[in-house]
Design a protein around this nucleic acid. Structure first.
Lengths: 125, 125
DNA sequence: CGGTATCCGCGAGGATACTG
DNA sequence: CAGTATCCTCGCGGATACCG
């Protein structure tokens, strides 16, 4: 690693700072999970209900990755029936501004996307 | 579509606004491409050089998707040797705040990620 | 309730070669 | 220079079944 960081601030094996970020939140469901954890901690099946498209398996996997990366904390209550709560860690909370920005953008322009895609799909005929 | 938007502002077939956003910029290289297009338009091989990990094929594919979604514009100069420039559209520029936020986060915390991953990898032994 | 375990298809994405 | 075209692999992610 002798190169003097071409143009971005190269760190941690990424060629560009946004690459690191997308590596963390780029999973299919991660940003959505984080979105739902912003306000308050949630139980596993709560998240499942909040995210209609996700399967149990995928929710588990994505949560495990977020846990590994130090973004969410998994609290297990030793009782029957079991109870597990997920919440953002302090580190995870540093992502909130990004999620908020993504939420705002999505609310403003989600409609335009379907529009643009329909247009280009129509042109293909 | 009769449901009254559970909790997020449901639009365009997404259950959550951030889902729409990640659908646009969630591709493996899209956010990095956008990052490099923020300041000024770039030629194809310029982008290749700026993004060491990307293959020619993937760069093309990701650019085509961004073009389809109305995020980038592709300007072809009819000459030999060919010259093609990519730049953000006005719509694409609405994503700049998100990219900036991702860049800032990446610069601040990219190091912590490798750290967290190394730790959890070490625990697995 | 909150998960694993297993099987499997499909498509994202890499490698290589060729082209206008 | 800026792409297609083709082939191939790998692992994401769905479906289903079972467990503490």
């Amino acid at each position: 690693m002798e190169k003097h960081a071409a143009d971005c601030g190269t760190q941690g094996g990424y060629s560009c700072p946004v690459e690191a970020t997308i590596d963390i939140i780029g999973g299919k469901w991660k940003s959505v999970i984080l979105f739902h954890l912003i306000d308050e901690k949630k139980r596993f099946n709560e998240l499942r209900r909040l995210i209609p498209g996700v399967t149990q398996r995928m929710l588990t996997l994505q949560l495990r990755e977020l846990e590994r990366d130090g973004i969410v904390h998994r609290e297990i209550y030793k009782q029957v029936p079991p109870k597990v709560e997920y919440r953002l860690t302090a580190f995870g909370e540093t992502l909130i501004p990004i999620i908020h920005q993504m939420m705002n953008w999505g609310m403003s322009y989600a409609a335009k996307i379907s529009e643009a895609r329909n247009r280009s799909a129509a042109e293909k005929l």
